[in-house]
Design a binder for these strands. Structure first.
Lengths: 147, 147
DNA sequence: CTCGATGCAAAGTATTTGCACCTAT
DNA sequence: ATAGGTGCAAATACTTTGCATCGAG
């Protein structure tokens, strides 16, 4: 994502906060920019370490509190990959993807498949179920690890 | 599942244990039968409470240790429904199903869809990925909760 | 009789919360 | 000025582990 686009997102975040009387503090800005500085999935711990290496010290509590806000504001999505802690990824409008998770090297490959999306909608219809979100994960070995 | 079938599974479990020099203790038998006495998804805590109500006291540690064994022996499958703790379900040979999870009442609806399964295989081919297992979950509102 | 199993309590992980002090608005 | 935010340490929730004792094979 370009800096330009990140700034647009940042404004959306500021607006979100302002609209409910919350504040855009230096800590929140620091976390916001670190989160959008990378495009990989990450965990709370990764974020903490990344900030430390940049000599930007923010407490664990604030990181968790801010991640929660970023999920509520629609900037992040929480994903659980069979582990007991959360992973986060950016939300990109109009794009849904699923994951292939390699049990060999831990690599996470994203893919999109329109046909699967449509079939999921059909399943919902069949059960009169109103879908809010969905996720699909395939665990196995990636091409490299199969060799 | 009929008692007859459960006994067959129990034998498989005994064999599994025997084959690696492990023992079929009264505690393990107690847990085994409770696990197969119901067909719903359950959590470690449910199991503990269920046993308590039956005046069968088994320690939490043993429950966790035995659940791990039942997963390894292929009797149970571990599923995570967006919460941070595990849910378990029986493994039935040759049957794979996915889940609709109602965010209103917490109900979990199982469904199978052959077309989706086939498309998942195609995705794996596309990425030269060797699938070991997969799961799909759709979160939303069930028919009852939509009213 | 022996090695694995059990219960308990303590230790781990990942995350949340209470509180006194601080600061963006 | 004041409601909301921060860091810290303690609390929580779920699960695992160390250890002394027990019991299945």
């Amino acid at each position: 994502m370009s800096d330009k686009k990140i700034q647009v997102e940042e404004q959306r975040f500021k607006d979100y906060l302002a609209s409910r009387g919350l504040k855009y503090t230096p800590e929140r800005r620091t976390i916001f920019w670190r989160v959008f500085a990378t495009h990989k999935h990450f965990e709370a711990e990764d974020l903490l370490l990344g900030l430390r290496q940049n000599h930007q010290r923010v407490s664990k509590a604030t990181i968790y509190r801010t991640l929660t806000l970023l999920v509520k504001s629609g900037h992040l999505r929480e994903v659980i990959f069979g582990e007991k802690h959360s992973h986060y990824e950016h939300v990109h409008a109009n794009e849904h993807h699923d994951h292939l998770i390699c049990s060999g090297c831990g690599k996470i490959i994203e893919f999109t498949d329109e046909a699967i999306e449509r079939l999921q909608d059909k399943v919902c219809l069949r059960y009169k179920f109103e879908s809010e979100s969905h996720r699909m994960q395939i665990h196995g070995l990636c091409a490299d690890c199969r060799k």
